[in-house]
Amino acid sequence: MGQSVAYEDVTSDADVVAWSREYCRDVRREWGVDVRFDLVDWEVSTRAKRRAAAVKRPKLPDATVGDPYDWAGVDGADGRPLPCTLSLTREAFEAFDRGEWEATLRHELVHVEQYQRDGTTDHGAAFRTRAADLETDVHCPTFADPKYVLSCTDCGGLVARRYRDCKLVRERARYRSDCCGAELALD
């Protein structure tokens, strides 16, 4: 793949976008991803703390994954999908190795492909199948340390990572692990 900005030379947010955009175009060409990049805006988030990237899109209440969406009925769409934004997290780019970042981008391309076809996206069966086709995971690797880690008191297995105080953290005595049905410990 002929990148105009070498991965190891990425120093700015503009470089992150340029390298990622070019990589995604190569993926579209080489892996047959059905994405219109003229309808994708790109940004780099410095605020995101947990997600490596995200597809920001309008919520269409009648859209369902697996059912092609009728974009002709949407104001301003002119029969084509409304634009979405691929938001990349700078801290994730810096924490991941190249393979992890490429897998993250392929993951997000599945979301863009689903959104442009179906008007929505999720991590369901169709996503898992397409992610496997693109040799990526359903969940991107973590790059930030969670504030709270909940584990099973019986087997010690990881139950959840939380980055802020929430009901699960505060009321963990009310919940049980899926693995053993045991109480949750806060590590």
Score class of each variant (00 low, 15 high):
Ala144Thr: 13
Gly73Ala: 08
Thr85Tyr: 06
Tyr175Thr: 05
Leu109Gly: 01
His111Arg: 13
Tyr163Phe: 11
His139Arg: 12
Arg130His: 04
Asp145His: 11
Glu91Val: 07
Cys152Glu: 08
Glu171Cys: 09
Asp62Cys: 07
Tyr163Asn: 13
Ala54Pro: 03
Val138Ser: 05
Tyr69His: 09
Arg51Cys: 03
Phe143Asn: 01
Tyr115Ser: 05
Arg36Asn: 15
Ala173Gln: 12
Ala72Ile: 05
Val40Asn: 12
Ala103Ile: 08
Arg130Ala: 02
Asp133Pro: 02
Trp101Pro: 11
Asp70Trp: 06
Asp145Met: 03
Asp78Val: 02
Arg130Leu: 02
Ala125Tyr: 03
Gly157Met: 07
Thr46Pro: 07
Ala72Gly: 09
Glu43Trp: 10
Cys166Asn: 10
Gly32Ala: 05
Ser151Phe: 11
Cys84Asp: 05
Gly156Pro: 01
Ala54Ile: 10
Gln116Arg: 04
Thr85Glu: 07
Asp165Phe: 07
Thr142Arg: 15
Phe93Cys: 09
Thr89Met: 06
Arg57His: 13
Arg174Leu: 12
Thr153Lys: 10
Ala72Glu: 13
Lys167Val: 10
Pro68Ser: 11
Arg90Gly: 05
Ala126Gln: 10
Leu168Gly: 10
Phe37Lys: 05
Ala125Gly: 02
Phe37Gln: 11
Arg172Ile: 09
Trp31Asp: 04
Asp70Phe: 03
Asp137Asn: 14
Gly76Val: 12
Val112Trp: 02
Ala92Leu: 06
His123Ser: 02
Thr46Ile: 09
Asp118Lys: 03
Ala125Leu: 04
Arg164His: 15
Arg36Glu: 11
Gly157Gln: 15
Asp67Tyr: 08
Asp38Asn: 14
Glu135Lys: 05
Arg36Thr: 12
Leu105Ser: 00
Ala77Ser: 13
Leu39Asp: 12
Ala52Phe: 03
Lys59Phe: 15
His111Gln: 13
Val149Cys: 15
Val40Thr: 14
Pro81Glu: 01
Gly79Asn: 13
Pro58Arg: 15
Asp41Gly: 14
Glu94Phe: 01
Arg36Phe: 14
Ala160Phe: 10
Asp41Tyr: 08
Asp137Lys: 14
Val74Met: 01
Gly32Gln: 06
Gly66Pro: 06
Asp133Tyr: 11
Asp97Asn: 10
Arg164Ser: 15
Pro58Cys: 14
Gly66His: 06
Val110Asp: 00
Arg170Met: 13
Ala126Cys: 02
Asp75Tyr: 11
Arg164Val: 15
Ala173Glu: 13
Glu102Gly: 01
Glu102Lys: 03
Val44Leu: 04
Ala144Asp: 09
Pro146Lys: 05
Pro146Glu: 06
Tyr163Glu: 13
Thr153Val: 06
Ala53Gln: 00
Pro141Phe: 00
Glu135Ser: 09
Val112Ala: 07
Lys167Glu: 08
Arg162Ser: 15
Lys59Arg: 15
Ala144Glu: 12
Gly66Asn: 06
Arg50Phe: 00
Glu43Ala: 13
Thr136Cys: 12
Val112Leu: 14
Leu60Tyr: 08
Pro61Cys: 01
Pro81Met: 03
Glu113Ile: 01
Ala63His: 05
Gly99Phe: 03
